[in-house]
């Protein structure tokens, strides 16, 4: 379980990007952080993972302050995939995934058959075994994202944080990545991710946390968060919410000026 208490985050002491935020993420669930650009959702993710030190407040993993834990100790429990990571030119998929074993290694314990087995498993799970010796920079966007997820899998953490794992991917690959994350969740991993697409968040998340101005506006199950009122409050956008015909989850249909004008003209 990950909790924050009155967590404030900022960059180099400027104004708070996340302000006195208290949040409890339930273990074993998929949690999606949503909100407009600059609302602090990526910053919050960085704070949850120790990429950013809190200005005030604490982040706890299973009751322990993550900043009181050793760096490798935390990295064995919590993995993070930053947004749009780039691999050095020529690094193979296998080499990238093997880096996931970093927190499990030390001077005394170098690469072992056990590490190799876990890397092979991560490759199978992400369906990349046949591409293991291909350089990451020669893969398609979807394959590349799967390779990074495989690295995080080899880290063998209970918690996985992802910052917009579907950006820059075409629709089919977006769904592919989200389905993969669902499978990982089914195996018991806690997943926290920043998502831009509300409908994908509604479909794939157990809990949605909607942020604006560095604070939580609403949190809960998708049907409680994806409502006309909350969307107006969070995004300043008028929308209708209908039922997703495939999944039965709420689906946000923005109104926008063009459609409003057309509709107005029809009324007249």
């Amino acid at each position: 379980m990950i909790e924050t208490h009155n967590l404030s985050l900022n960059y180099d002491g400027s104004t708070d990007v996340v302000h006195e935020l208290t949040l409890t993420v339930i273990a074993g669930q998929i949690t999606a952080l949503v909100g407009p650009n600059g609302c602090g959702k990526s910053t919050l993710l960085r704070g949850l993972s120790r990429l950013l030190k809190p200005a005030r407040g604490v982040v706890c993993l299973d009751g322990r302050d993550i900043h009181a834990m050793g760096a490798k100790d935390l990295a064995r429990r919590l993995g993070i995939l930053p947004q749009g990571p780039t691999a050095p030119e020529g690094l193979t998929v296998h080499e990238l995934v093997a880096q996931g074993r970093y927190p499990h290694q030390s001077w005394f314990q170098q690469w072992s058959a056990h590490d190799e087995q876990i890397v092979a498993q991560a490759l199978i799970q992400t369906n990349l075994s046949l591409l293991a010796d291909r350089p990451v920079d020669t893969l398609s966007g979807g394959q590349r994202q799967r390779a990074w997820i495989a690295m995080a899998l080899a880290q063998q953490t209970d918690v996985l944080l992802l910052d917009e794992p579907t950006t820059y991917l075409d629709l089919a690959h977006q769904i592919d990545v989200l389905d993969l994350l669902t499978e990982l969740n089914d195996q018991g991993r806690t997943i926290i991710m920043v998502l831009h697409d509300l409908n994908q968040a509604a479909r794939y998340a157990d809990m949605i946390v909607a942020l604006r101005g560095g604070q939580i506006v609403a949190q809960g199950a998708p049907q409680n968060v994806i409502t006309c009122d909350i969307i107006r409050q969070v995004f300043g956008l008028d929308a209708q919410v209908i039922v997703d015909p495939v999944a039965g989850t709420p689906m946000c249909v923005p109104i926008g000026r063009r459609a409003a004008r057309v509709r107005q003209a029809a009324v007249n």
Binding site: S49, R50, L51, G70, A71, K72, D73, L74, A75, R76, G79, I80, L81, P82, P85, T86, A87, P88, L91, L96, Q99, G100, Y102, P103, Q155
Partner: peptide, 15 residues
């Protein structure tokens, strides 16, 4: 090698 994946990734791996 690990840090050549980028600062954030390396930190996330516990470096």
């Amino acid at each position: 090698t690990t840090i050549s994946l980028g600062d954030d990734v390396a930190k996330g791996l516990g470096q």
